Simulated assay, not measured.
Amino acid sequence: MPEADEERAWREVVDGEELALAERRLAGHRQSEEARPSLMALLWSGRLTTGLVAGPLSGACVLRRNG
């Protein structure tokens, strides 16, 4: 995954946005799944967080900016 895609996702993700909505918005005219690797990289690195108390990661998970 290109670093530029990850940085673009970081700039454009909205605090409190659901994962599925962020994917659709970031993907633009592409398939929404194409934005997923960038968002997952941001979650993995801790720049974004989401609560997994209610269940596994899904499109309904709310993203929080961390930093």
Score class of each variant (00 low, 15 high):
residue 40 M to Y: 15
residue 46 G to H: 05
residue 60 A to Y: 04
residue 23 E to P: 08
residue 53 V to G: 01
residue 21 L to K: 11
residue 13 V to Q: 09
residue 39 L to S: 03
residue 7 E to T: 11
residue 44 W to T: 01
residue 31 Q to W: 11
residue 57 L to F: 06
residue 16 G to L: 07
residue 33 E to G: 15
residue 30 R to H: 14
residue 28 G to W: 07
residue 14 V to W: 10
residue 63 L to A: 02
residue 47 R to F: 04
residue 47 R to T: 01
residue 61 C to Y: 10
residue 43 L to V: 04
residue 39 L to Y: 02
residue 42 L to N: 01
residue 23 E to W: 14
residue 29 H to Q: 14
residue 3 E to P: 13
residue 65 R to V: 07
residue 12 E to S: 08
residue 65 R to Y: 03
residue 2 P to M: 07
residue 56 P to W: 03
residue 60 A to G: 09
residue 65 R to M: 06
residue 48 L to K: 00
residue 22 A to L: 05
residue 64 R to E: 08
residue 63 L to F: 04
residue 15 D to L: 10
residue 5 D to E: 14
residue 11 R to C: 05
residue 66 N to P: 00
residue 31 Q to G: 00
residue 19 L to R: 07
residue 8 R to N: 12
residue 21 L to S: 14
residue 58 S to R: 15
residue 11 R to V: 08
residue 17 E to C: 07
residue 1 M to A: 11
residue 55 G to S: 05
residue 45 S to N: 06
residue 56 P to V: 04
residue 44 W to D: 00
residue 17 E to H: 04
residue 53 V to K: 10
residue 6 E to D: 04
residue 34 E to G: 03
residue 10 W to R: 06
residue 37 P to Q: 07
residue 25 R to W: 00
residue 57 L to S: 05
residue 66 N to H: 11
residue 9 A to V: 02
residue 23 E to D: 12
residue 58 S to G: 13
residue 62 V to E: 04
residue 37 P to E: 09
residue 59 G to K: 03
residue 53 V to P: 01
residue 38 S to D: 02
residue 22 A to E: 05
residue 29 H to I: 15
residue 11 R to N: 09
residue 27 A to W: 10
residue 5 D to I: 03
residue 7 E to R: 15
residue 3 E to G: 15
residue 8 R to A: 15
residue 42 L to P: 02
residue 28 G to Q: 09
residue 2 P to S: 13
residue 37 P to V: 05
residue 29 H to V: 15
residue 67 G to P: 11
residue 58 S to E: 12
residue 64 R to V: 03
residue 5 D to P: 00
residue 58 S to C: 11
residue 48 L to H: 01
residue 22 A to M: 03
residue 41 A to D: 04
residue 32 S to D: 10
residue 64 R to W: 10
residue 66 N to T: 05
residue 35 A to V: 07
residue 44 W to N: 09
residue 63 L to D: 03
residue 39 L to R: 06
residue 54 A to L: 02
residue 50 T to L: 01
residue 52 L to F: 06
residue 25 R to C: 05
residue 61 C to L: 10
residue 45 S to I: 01
residue 64 R to M: 06
residue 4 A to K: 03
residue 36 R to W: 01
residue 49 T to A: 11
residue 9 A to T: 02
residue 16 G to F: 08
residue 66 N to W: 05
residue 13 V to G: 07
residue 24 R to W: 04
residue 13 V to I: 12
residue 20 A to H: 11
residue 32 S to E: 12
residue 9 A to L: 00
residue 9 A to W: 01
residue 21 L to D: 10
residue 11 R to Q: 13
residue 51 G to A: 10
residue 12 E to F: 09
residue 40 M to K: 14
residue 7 E to W: 12
residue 1 M to C: 06
residue 15 D to F: 10
residue 48 L to N: 00
residue 66 N to G: 02
residue 16 G to D: 00
residue 51 G to N: 12
residue 8 R to S: 13
residue 28 G to P: 11
residue 51 G to Q: 08
residue 33 E to H: 13
residue 7 E to H: 13
residue 26 L to E: 06
residue 46 G to F: 10
residue 1 M to K: 12
residue 45 S to C: 07
residue 32 S to V: 13
residue 50 T to E: 02
residue 3 E to W: 12
residue 30 R to D: 15
residue 58 S to W: 09
residue 39 L to C: 00
residue 16 G to A: 08
residue 28 G to S: 12
residue 4 A to T: 10
residue 37 P to A: 07
residue 64 R to L: 09
residue 62 V to A: 02
residue 38 S to G: 13
